[in-house]
Computed example of a mutant assay.
Amino acid sequence: MRRLLVIAVIVGLLGGVAAHSAALTTTMWLPDNRLATLAGQLRGYEQHDYRLPLRQGQLLRLSLGSNKPSTRFSLLPPGGGTALLQGAGDSRRYSVRVLQDGDFTLRIYQTVDAARLGESSRFSLQLQALGPVGHDTLPAFRRQLAWRDIRFTLQCDCRSSLNTLLLRMDGPRQRQQLQLALDGSISGAELADLNADGRPELYLYLQSAGSGSYGSVLTLLLDARQQLQQLPALPPLAADAAGQGYMGHDQFEIAGQRLLRRFPLYRPQDSNTTPTGGWRELRYRLAASGDGWQLQLESSTP
């Protein structure tokens, strides 16, 4: 699943997961009434923790879908303790009213039997926090991401079809502030080093306005001078190849040294809300192109 803020390794026993499991922790702000959609993958005893700063009186709604019945979730209160909600990755909709301010933890994991066998599963997560009346709302997208001693702060209102991203980078040798015009809203952000040069790239996952929710990626690369430079956009999908059956609803994530892009496939008779053609996964590598770098399509499955 998607990694959006501070990455840490946590060893412990919470929510019934084995003590030698590795936890990937992501902090998310959920602005009032905005739906957040994420995706990820689990292997064996791995678990994903989503730290959710919430306010008293908010109503948290969540839905977890997975390709394996062994996928589970637990919602833990600030400081740990008894789970407020527990469920499986069956796409059911759950909700709970938050009775205190604090950082809640949503933990995604596999059952002990599946983890012991080393099974893997994919999951998709939908989260929405309905704000209490009278409270000021946060920007629709707000993230902090860290790469070693470099920190990125991102903020975008993202409530219209055309938006502006405020980006601040704080490093030991350089500080920068940028404003970037966006065609669409931001659905996620990750840091990675896909060209293995020891410096991070910032990947912003964009979603167009409207029911199609067509996806794109804005990539910012930190060069040897510690300057951020914007890379070319993803090449368009060809109608007779990787893009056949494509009608939007993209999901993006970094896996190893590749950018993965998944989307449902539509047959000619399908409506926009009911794809029946399965899913396609595209893999992109960050390759040298002229004097710079560019994401290039490497493979398509199926």
Rank of each mutant, 00 (worst) to 15 (best):
R168K: 14
V112R: 06
S120P: 01
R122D: 14
D49S: 11
L54I: 07
L85T: 07
G134M: 09
W147H: 10
L166I: 09
L84E: 09
G81C: 04
D170S: 13
S121T: 08
L38K: 08
G44R: 09
R51N: 01
G131L: 05
Q110H: 05
R175F: 10
R142H: 11
R116T: 11
E119V: 04
L130H: 10
R116E: 12
G80M: 01
D136G: 15
P53M: 04
S124T: 12
Q176M: 12
A36G: 03
Y94E: 06
G89L: 02
F73Q: 03
L138Q: 09
V96L: 12
F123V: 05
S74M: 04
R92A: 10
A114L: 03
H135T: 13
Q110P: 07
L75D: 02
L84W: 03
S63M: 01
D170K: 12
R72Y: 07
A39Q: 14
T82H: 09
C156V: 06
F104I: 00
G171K: 08
G87E: 02
S124H: 07
G87A: 01
Q41R: 15
F123C: 03
N33Y: 11
P78E: 08
A115M: 02
K68G: 01
P139I: 01
D149K: 14
R93V: 08
V133E: 14
A39H: 11
Q128H: 01
T137A: 15
R61F: 05
R43A: 14
F123S: 05
D113P: 04
R159N: 10
L38F: 13
E46F: 09
R93W: 00
R43V: 13
P139F: 01
T105E: 04
L165F: 10
L60W: 02
A115E: 00
L125I: 10
Q155E: 15
P132L: 12
A140R: 15
D101S: 00
G118N: 04
T82Y: 06
T153K: 07
L145P: 04
A115V: 02
C156Y: 06
R122A: 13
S66K: 01
K68T: 02
L117P: 02
R34P: 03
Q155L: 11
Y109D: 13
R55W: 07
Y45C: 08
D90I: 04
Y45V: 10
P139Q: 01
E46H: 12
R97S: 14
D170R: 13
G81F: 06
H48Y: 07
Q155D: 08
R92W: 00
Y50M: 08
I150E: 14
R97T: 15
T164D: 11
C158M: 02
L62D: 01
P172L: 10
P77E: 07
F152V: 11
L165W: 11
T137L: 13
S95H: 12
A129F: 01
D170G: 10
R34H: 11
C158W: 04
L99Q: 13
L130R: 12
L42R: 12
P132Q: 12
F104W: 05
G79N: 09
P139M: 00
A146D: 13
D149S: 15
